[in-house]
Design a protein around this nucleic acid. Structure first.
Length: 504
RNA sequence: GGCGCUAUCGUCUAGGGGUUAGGACGGAAGAUUCUCAAUCUUCAAACCCGGGUUCGAUUCCCGGUAGCGCUACCA
């Protein structure tokens, strides 16, 4: 008897998304856990597109899944498409049917719906069809009457289906509580249950690591594996990722926050995103939070997986509407943001600079790699998302500062006369200063003295004059990168704002 | 409705028959500083409810409640 759990060899795991939507964060986490398990155990990671639902499959979805996975950058070892393996699926259905463990159901599709979903009614099987004699069944099939193939679930009292889940432990369910699920649709296409099991068996999958929404389906799968003569693989179900409102993440209800590409486009680092997802429903149990890819591989184990659903704590005040706020930070889980900021800070400047450059260029700014490299250390500790570079370092990129309120130029405990004095002093002093941190520091501090003001009062008007706002990176580094020419030009503009008449 | 699963700070989690119930994010306060950020310090914040077992339950068992999942010829 073939053993699907292949206890002898290395583990073989799979990620099997159905291309009926974009890659969402829950799927991404399932992929990651499978990948981690494979890498941890020296096993094989398989990507299988479960595309048996021709009606709902879309190319856009396939593209989105590959795009998302490509961004994660984890990779896989083997790749399959379920739609190309129909023969295998039908063979397994035939095997089960020939053993008498499945029967033809000639009831037209959907007509059973009303009774099934009735107030009390729980549909379990179709007595008339389940009991149909083989002769009559064959006759009607031969006559061309369409039918679905249903599994003949053993429902005598006392019959239970059982398996051990690596996360949820011993599971068992009475056969009488399992409905006679379909194996083949009336158009001959396999259902998910059949196709999935047939492929898992054929691909010698040893561990099925998937969402907990499949936990109750697993009883059916165990039935299929055994009916077809296979030892079921090991199962490990993952707690679900849910929205703050407690419901399963869905695009319709929660919008783009559930799509992996949204994180990518917002400026998440894939390593930080992976790190974040790993912390939902799994724990290394030693209080570690920030972990590199290798650390995650080394720490990963099925035992560390939690049983309770985990909330992805994004802002869902506008549930139902697509959250596309001006401030993208608002829509993400704060911990994901923090992890991303931490990862950004931990990146070598050169590396970060290279990742920032394409974003800046795409926004329409002409920046050389050399200049980007100078700017990067100034904003590294000030951005949470890569895209924040656009707001944190904007004044480095533009030729003309966007308009700002001249009142911003006024320093603490000062007035516009003081601001003007400061800027004029700067204008006088700066041309003779070397534009490097220390000389600028010394020159500007010295300039504050004769004015009888504090250093802070000296710096503030200059900062606003060159950056266009009060909150900005440290002044001397900023001036050094901006250069003497731009600095003096912007100071001149600020003076004219303060004193349009030029009377002073 | 039936069946299955789950339940520790707002969120992610550690822990486990006797603990000051630990960490992290977020929040608050303070330190530092040319602003902001970063950094450091401090603070507030949790064992769903009821029984049982026990000398002792947040931890074990049972029940309740709540949430989630499945209950399709979707996956």
């Amino acid at each position: 008897m073939p053993d699907a759990s292949s206890s002898a060899g290395k583990p073989r795991v799979r990620f099997a998304p159905s291309p009926t939507g974009f890659l969402h964060v829950g799927s991404a986490r399932t992929f990651i856990f499978n990948w981690l398990y494979a890498r941890r155990t020296g096993g094989t990671m398989i990507l299988r597109l479960d595309d048996t639902d021709v009606e709902r499959n879309t190319d856009a979805s396939v593209t989105s899944i590959f795009e998302g996975l490509k961004w994660l950058g984890l990779g896989w070892d083997e790749e399959y498409k379920q739609s190309e393996r129909g023969k295998l699926h039908r063979q397994m259905a035939e095997t089960i049917f020939q053993k008498g463990l499945a029967y033809r159901d000639f009831t037209p599709a959907h007509t059973g719906d009303s009774e099934k979903s009735g107030a009390q009614g729980t549909w379990l099987f179709n007595p008339g069809m389940r009991e149909l004699s083989r002769e009559e069944s064959d006759r009607r099939a031969a006559a061309g009457e369409p039918f679905a193939l249903r599994f003949r679930v053993p429902r005598e009292s006392g019959r239970v289906v059982a398996f051990t889940d690596a996360v949820y432990g011993e599971q068992s369910k009475a056969g009488a509580d399992i409905e006679d699920f379909a194996l083949l649709r009336s158009d001959g296409m396999p259902t998910y249950h059949l196709a999935s099991c047939a492929d898992d068996a054929d691909l010698r999958i040893s561990h099925i690591i998937r969402g907990q929404d499949h936990l109750s389906n697993t009883f059916k799968h165990v039935l299929i594996f055994k009916a077809a003569g296979y030892v079921p693989p090991q199962f490990a179900h993952l707690p679900l990722l849910v929205a703050p409102d407690g419901t399963k993440l869905s695009k319709r209800r929660h919008g783009p926050v559930v799509s992996v590409t949204t994180y990518r486009d917002a400026g998440f680092l894939p390593e930080a995103f992976i790190n974040f997802l790993c912390l939902l429903g799994w724990s290394p149990k030693n209080d570690r939070e920030q972990m590199s890819r290798q650390e995650l591989i080394d720490a990963f184990s099925l035992e560390g997986i939690n049983r309770a659903n985990a909330v992805v704590n994004f802002k869902d005040s506008d549930v139902g509407r697509a959250p596309t706020p001006a401030n993208p930070e608002d829509m993400f889980d704060p911990k994901a943001l923090w992890l991303n900021a931490e990862t950004i800070r931990g990146l070598p400047v050169e590396d970060l600079s290279q990742r920032l450059l394409p974003i800046v260029r795409e926004a329409g700014f002409n920046v050389t790699p050399e200049r980007m490299l100078q700017i990067t250390p100034l904003i590294r500790e000030r951005i949470k998302l890569l895209r924040d570079v656009l707001t944190a370092a904007d004044f480095f990129f533009v030729d003309q500062l966007p308009p700002y309120d001249p009142a911003e130029l006024i320093p603490q405990k000062g007035d516009s006369a003081m601001a003007l004095k400061v800027l004029q002093k700067a204008q006088a002093v700066l041309p003779n200063v070397e534009f490097k941190h220390d000389p600028l520091d010394q020159a500007l501090r010295a300039a504050a003295q004769p004015l009888g003001i504090k250093a802070g009062q000296m710096f503030q008007p200059i900062r606003v004059a060159v950056c266009g706002r009060k909150n900005a990176p440290p002044l001397f580094e900023t001036l050094a990168v901006l250069g003497k020419e731009t600095t003096l030009e912007r100071i001149g503009q600020a003076i004219r704002k303060l004193d349009p008449s030029g009377s002073a």
